[in-house]
Simulated scan of single mutants.
Amino acid sequence: MLLLAEVIGLLPARLLAPEVFDQREDDGIVLLLDEYPGDELHATVREAAIVCPGAAISVHETA
């Protein structure tokens, strides 16, 4: 699974998957902590993409 996230203020994703998403306090830019999260996080990351208010998270399956 490959994740792409480009957004400011990604609170829902941070709450759902703090192992994958974080946010800089000084400017609100989101940090992608794990571009290839493990299988155990796939459902959570997909949910984060669905609830992202700006639709700024893309989930791509990789081989």
Rank of each mutant, 00 (worst) to 15 (best):
V30D: 00
P12G: 08
I57L: 01
G38K: 11
D27T: 11
A63C: 09
I50Y: 08
L32N: 03
A56P: 04
E6R: 14
A48S: 09
L2K: 14
G28W: 07
V7H: 03
G9M: 01
D27C: 13
Q23W: 04
S58K: 15
E61Y: 02
L10H: 01
R24P: 03
L41K: 10
A13K: 03
G38A: 10
D22Q: 11
T44I: 15
L4Y: 15
Q23A: 07
A56C: 14
I29H: 09
V59R: 02
V51F: 04
D34S: 12
H42R: 13
A17M: 08
E35P: 06
G38T: 10
I50F: 10
R24L: 10
L10F: 05
P37R: 07
D27M: 09
H60T: 13
L4M: 11
A55E: 06
A55T: 11
C52K: 02
A17N: 08
E19T: 07
M1E: 06
P12V: 06
L2I: 08
G38F: 04
L31H: 09
A17R: 03
L11D: 15
V59L: 00
E61Q: 11
D34K: 15
L15G: 12
H42Q: 13
V20H: 03
A17I: 05
L3Q: 01
M1K: 04
A48Q: 02
Q23N: 05
I29F: 09
V45F: 06
F21N: 05
G9N: 09
D39G: 12
I8K: 13
G38L: 07
P37Y: 07
E6I: 09
V20T: 03
A13C: 12
L2V: 06
P37D: 12
E25W: 11
L10Q: 04
Q23V: 14
I8A: 11
E61A: 15
G28I: 01
R24G: 07
Y36G: 00
D34L: 04
A63Q: 11
L16Y: 07
A5E: 02
F21W: 13
I57F: 00
I50N: 08
M1Y: 06
P37I: 08
M1N: 05
E40A: 13
E6L: 08
E47H: 12
L10P: 02
I8P: 02
E35I: 05
P18I: 09
P18W: 11
A43E: 10
A56L: 00
L3V: 12
H42L: 15
I29G: 01
L16G: 05
Q23T: 15
L15E: 13
D27V: 07
V30W: 02
R24Q: 10
I57Q: 00
E25H: 09
F21Q: 07
L16F: 09
P18G: 05
I8H: 06
D39T: 13
A48M: 05
